[in-house]
Write a protein that binds this DNA or RNA. Structure first.
Lengths: 228, 228
DNA sequence: CGATTGCTTGACCCCCATCAATCCTCGTGG
DNA sequence: CCACGAGGATTGATGGGGGTCAAGCAATCG
């Protein structure tokens, strides 16, 4: 089993605040796991009893709305940690996580993390900072959802994806979301998202080749998302 | 100056986790303040440099969207703490807070809180829990904003206000929001909110007497908010 | 190579944003 | 005490955004 002390991924998240001794203990109690594309990492209502550290791959984190449609709230990628919130307030997860492509994750059981939170102020402070930042981002999303048109939200989402994920060799975004996924991020019907995507393509803001998306005109997209 | 050790309000928020000695120090460095209805407690972009503990009154916390409308994201009331997020990630506030009625608040400077966060694991754990819970609530708001109609959101907001605030003697909700405020909570135009309110009144779900709002039929409102 | 799933486009219609006009309410000054 | 002005509340009219249903097309898979 690979050792946390030597894991590069750790450097990107709060686990970097752990001491060497703590990391060795984590190595001893963690489990690794492969999650195939489309598989459920955890579901709404499930007790996770620990946190996941994503070594590779991407998953979509969503919540079912009363009307029966999934709203995607987060995209989690390599280096991110997920599950810490349910762990902290000791509740079942309010969210569902599904792998967007094949993932490799490590699972660290609750007790170990709670112990570290108690004893390592620097670790808990880092978690605090991460959560404060997530809250700030959530504020932005709420405002966008409440005030922006679907077109603006699509433009903003494309920019966000462009910033968050790497490019393939040909310049397309290295994340394979279905049209439905995209619609579920911006909170609209799949057909609406499709229509707007092809409108953007017609205006040369983006290019579409099957599932691949190329961002051509960041500036225009930014103006669109801000409502010009 | 009143003493934090004897302040009842503290029992409702994370400050209850502080030790007696810490509370005495807080008493020594805190300042009290009266904020009149309509006055700004803090503005977007401002460095707060501490936290506010609300002894009395209510304030609306909002964020300006690109299109120039304020979106109200939180309503903060007696017993709540506000400002901890900007303090934790050491940034200017991304939100604006305006008093909805006359308020009485205590201000505790940053250094004191940071010191307590470092030294009192139970305090920082309590803050963590509060933030984890806020994130969960934010998820719900995002889903509602993205997926629900304006009518559903108004119903949900009325229920939320009903649950969060006390009643007056005559049974109306003890919070005086303008129609514009209500519209800015649910993220719609003022006229739309007004129209829906009078529709609800016609259907006997609520009653309106000037600014006062009476909730008549919780069950019907709940069904409405869930989309029946 | 069917068959299932996802993508795309068209048609239709309702919700809601916007503009405009009026009414109401309340605080201020004459 | 009243007049008046300003801001909020209300109602009407209108047009466009976007949700929904339906049908045709492409692609992926057993």
């Amino acid at each position: 089993m690979s050792k946390c002390e030597q894991c590069i991924v750790r450097e990107f998240n709060s686990l970097k605040a752990l001491t060497k001794e703590e990391l060795i203990r984590v190595t001893g109690c963690k489990t690794s796991k492969i999650v195939k594309k489309g598989e459920v990492l955890f579901d709404e209502g499930e007790y996770i009893n620990g946190i996941f550290c994503v070594k590779d791959g991407v998953c979509k984190v969503s919540k079912m709305s009363d009307n029966g449609r999934d709203q995607i709230i987060h995209l989690i990628k390599k280096g991110d940690i997920i599950g810490e919130r349910s762990l902290i307030n000791n509740e079942a997860s309010n969210l569902k996580a599904i792998a967007v492509n094949d993932m490799e994750v490590c699972f660290i059981p609750k007790e170990e993390i709670l112990r570290d939170l108690e004893n390592n102020a620097s670790f808990s402070m880092d978690i605090l900072k991460k959560m404060a930042n997530s809250l700030k981002e959530a504020d932005d999303v709420i405002v966008d959802m409440a005030q922006k048109t679907v077109k603006q939200r699509l433009a903003a989402t494309l920019l966000l994806l462009d910033a968050k994920f790497d490019k393939n060799e040909n310049g397309s975004m290295n994340i394979s979301l279905s049209r439905e996924d995209i619609a579920n991020i911006i909170g609209t019907a799949t057909e609406s998202a499709i229509r707007l995507l092809s409108e953007f393509k017609k205006k040369k803001l983006i290019d579409l080749k099957g599932k691949e998306i190329f961002i051509n005109d960041i500036k225009a997209l930014r103006e669109l998302s801000e409502g010009f």
